[in-house]
Amino acid sequence: MTAESLSASYTVEFPFERTVGPTIGAFLGGLRDGQLYGVRTERGALCPPLEFEPGTGAETGELVPVADTGTVTSWTWVRARLGDPVPHDFAWALIAIDGTIGALFHAVDVGGDSGRMATGMRVRARWRAERVGQLSDIECFEVAP
């Protein structure tokens, strides 16, 4: 008699359909249009927007269009893998979008040279030509001229 363990195939599935609501929904719609939005709070415009001010729990206000440029406040260098937004080595960064509070998390492409990355550097969004309403409509950020 040989030792044998029973096995059976099992498909893990998560059949959920998310709702995003008007605030996040309009932000995603803006991405599709190539326009970034922030949302008004008592402290200033928050980008990326949230439905509630995280510091107080207060409801946030109306959406306001903001620039697609900003300043890198923190970053980490990573080797490129299949499926990453940039085909060569790049940085994941927190980007303070101009005129807003908060930090947008995205990739920064400096041509594979980590020596060109610096906290405080100025960056600009590189938009995809085909946009569908998700954060990857911004391919990555690149050094602002």
Partner: peptide, 12 residues
């Protein structure tokens, strides 16, 4: 069926 609001907004 509340497809127009997020979970957070519905709770709020």
């Amino acid at each position: 069926k509340r497809r127009e609001v997020s979970i957070g907004a519905m709770v709020r």
